[in-house]
């Protein structure tokens, strides 16, 4: 407290901002940490762009910028519309559609598994389960989310495909390949259920009880409250969980490589072997192709395509969050 003779003067002193060295140090330290994340992202993006440029043109991007002039060796039309992916073949082709086909197959299929089951689990946990049940189930979900993805891959080839998928389709006289998209769809779906369930449940828990009480007092059943009040009120969080699960499925690598194989193919059948963008990247990154070869650089072009797809999913997530956020007082 100021003991100044002029009380108004003393008060004014108190509210004047003081130069605070510690404040500045803390702020710089925190800024440094934030900068590392941003710089890493930028560095990844630069490396991807630079090498992907080398794939499409005969020189790398930095060479082209320094020396000027580059001739295109692979057209964008070939890359984005070509239906054959064979980068190391004696007559190579670089059409990414088969890889996108594989990735979308897994992503869309897995969404059909994880979204309904995950949402139902979230509604059960948030609205129906007794507190004791919830306190046991929620950690179990988190364990499921923590299992390494390669374990899911083994689960697919040692259990889902031989014991479930192949005998089932045999009944109809249909032969499923040992590596097949359906197994990948099932494991990636299962793998992303916890993400949908857990994030959606958090969003539902954030809905104020006042709203539930308002509906119950009007004679709503538990089902009507869950579907008609809680779900709409938490929809931005629920959608966010869907997008996160989808972008996780797009980027999923080990489980799909094991379950679905590595054969680029244009097909809508879930019973054949296929290849996703990520499986192509693991199979090629083992170091068989020479650094600087077009085969090697195709990795970066595919990587960049993948990066853009996940980025788009994240931007969509941000947009949905902003668009549907409800403000409670």
């Amino acid at each position: 407290m100021s003991t100044d003779t002029d009380p108004s003067q003393g008060f004014a002193d108190e509210i004047v901002r003081k130069d605070n060295a510690e404040n500045r140090r803390v702020r710089r330290g925190l800024f440094g940490c934030a900068a590392i994340t941003v710089l890493t992202t930028v560095a990844i993006f630069v490396v991807l762009i630079d090498n992907a440029f080398g794939f499409f043109f005969d020189v790398r991007l930095y060479e082209a910028t320094l020396q000027g002039g580059a001739t295109q060796q692979i057209t964008f039309t070939e890359y984005f519309t070509g239906a054959r992916w064979a980068p190391s073949h004696s007559t190579p082709d670089f059409g990414i559609l088969p890889l996108i086909n594989g990735t979308l197959m897994v992503t869309v299929g897995a969404a059909f598994v994880s979204i309904p089951i995950g949402t139902a689990t979230a509604i059960y946990l948030s609205e129906y389960a007794r507190p004791e049940v919830r306190s046991k189930l929620k950690p179990a979900l988190e364990v499921l989310a923590g299992v390494p993805t390669i374990v899911y891959g083994f689960f697919a080839i040692s259990f889902i495909t031989p014991i479930f998928i192949r005998p089932f389709f045999e009944l109809f006289g249909v032969r499923a390949s040992f590596f097949n998209a359906l197994a990948a769809i099932i494991v990636v779906g299962i793998m992303t259920i916890p993400m949908v369930a857990s994030i959606s449940e958090d969003a539902m828990q954030a809905v104020p009880d006042d709203l539930r009480n308002g509906a119950y007092a009007l004679g709503a059943s538990r089902h009507e409250v869950s579907m008609g009040v809680v779900l709409p009120a938490s929809i931005s969080g629920v959608f966010a969980s869907y997008i996160l699960a989808i972008s996780r499925a797009i980027g999923e690598t080990m489980a799909v490589t094991l379950a679905m194989g590595a054969q680029p193919r244009m097909s809508l059948s879930p019973l054949v072997e296929m290849m996703t963008m990520t499986s192509f990247m693991v199979s090629r990154a083992r170091g068989e192709s020479a650094v600087g070869s077009i085969d090697y650089q195709s990795l970066f072009a595919v990587g960049l395509t993948l990066f853009v797809m996940t980025l788009a999913a994240n931007l969509l997530n941000d947009y949905i969050k902003r668009r549907y956020r409800e403000v409670y007082q």
Binding site: D210, L211, G214, Y216, L218, G219, V229, A233
Partner: peptide, 15 residues
């Protein structure tokens, strides 16, 4: 509750 309605202490409109 369909026969006995209630208005709460804090306003709680649905979103």
């Amino acid at each position: 509750r369909r026969k006995i309605g209630q208005v709460f202490q804090r306003p709680n409109p649905f979103p």
